[in-house]
Amino acid sequence: MQIFVKTLTGKTITLEVEPSDTIENVKAKIQDKEGIPPDQQRLIFNGKQLEDGRTLSDYNIQKDSTLHLVLR
């Protein structure tokens, strides 16, 4: 499925993911596309910070959902 990740600069990254993917996996995909190390990434969905060990389906993230990427 496709999800979107919006950065603070207003750029939107499109990712191909599975609901069973962990947040860690998603961060690795963002690193592949953008070169941002996962330990600098914080992903936010519906105002909640997403934890590495959880999956997209844990957070009820579905296709065409938009996550927000904050760098630390």
Score class of each variant (00 low, 15 high):
41 Q>M: 07
57 S>D: 11
7 T>N: 09
31 Q>D: 10
21 D>W: 02
43 L>A: 01
49 Q>G: 10
25 N>I: 10
68 H>E: 03
4 F>L: 02
21 D>E: 15
28 A>W: 07
34 E>K: 02
6 K>L: 12
46 N>R: 09
63 K>D: 05
71 L>W: 03
71 L>Q: 05
34 E>Q: 07
6 K>Q: 06
28 A>L: 09
18 E>F: 11
57 S>K: 11
65 S>D: 05
72 R>A: 14
61 I>N: 00
31 Q>P: 05
42 R>N: 06
63 K>H: 09
31 Q>F: 06
42 R>E: 13
44 I>N: 15
62 Q>K: 06
52 D>Y: 02
14 T>A: 11
48 K>G: 08
43 L>D: 00
28 A>V: 12
68 H>K: 02
42 R>V: 08
42 R>G: 04
68 H>T: 02
47 G>M: 12
60 N>H: 10
23 I>T: 13
62 Q>R: 04
30 I>W: 01
28 A>M: 09
14 T>M: 13
43 L>T: 00
16 E>T: 12
21 D>T: 05
71 L>S: 13
61 I>S: 01
10 G>I: 03
57 S>T: 07
36 I>N: 07
71 L>T: 13
39 D>R: 15
45 F>L: 03
65 S>T: 15
7 T>D: 07
7 T>H: 06
5 V>L: 11
63 K>P: 12
49 Q>L: 11
58 D>E: 11
5 V>I: 09
65 S>E: 05
45 F>W: 12
55 T>E: 13
54 R>K: 06
19 P>W: 07
50 L>M: 09
21 D>F: 06
63 K>Y: 04
46 N>M: 09
11 K>F: 06
54 R>E: 08
18 E>D: 14
21 D>V: 09
43 L>P: 01
8 L>N: 04
14 T>Q: 08
45 F>K: 03
10 G>R: 07
72 R>D: 13
22 T>D: 05
37 P>N: 15
27 K>T: 02
54 R>D: 15
60 N>W: 15
42 R>M: 10
2 Q>I: 07
26 V>A: 07
56 L>T: 07
58 D>Q: 07
68 H>I: 03
13 I>A: 03
42 R>K: 12
56 L>A: 02
65 S>V: 07
34 E>P: 02
57 S>Y: 12
50 L>V: 05
3 I>W: 00
53 G>Q: 10
69 L>M: 04
46 N>T: 12
30 I>P: 00
69 L>Y: 02
16 E>M: 15
49 Q>K: 05
19 P>A: 05
18 E>R: 11
28 A>F: 15
44 I>T: 08
33 K>V: 11
66 T>F: 04
63 K>M: 09
31 Q>N: 14
62 Q>N: 10
64 D>P: 02
49 Q>I: 14
18 E>H: 06
54 R>G: 10
70 V>W: 03
32 D>K: 03
69 L>T: 01
10 G>H: 07
43 L>I: 13
15 L>D: 00
59 Y>R: 01
4 F>Y: 15
65 S>I: 06
52 D>G: 13
56 L>E: 00
4 F>R: 02
71 L>H: 12
18 E>N: 09
40 Q>A: 11
33 K>A: 14
7 T>Y: 06
29 K>R: 08
60 N>P: 05
7 T>E: 08
42 R>F: 12
23 I>W: 01
49 Q>Y: 13
14 T>S: 09
66 T>S: 05
55 T>W: 10
34 E>R: 07
33 K>F: 14
21 D>S: 10
14 T>P: 09
56 L>P: 01
48 K>I: 15
24 E>D: 03
18 E>K: 07
27 K>E: 02
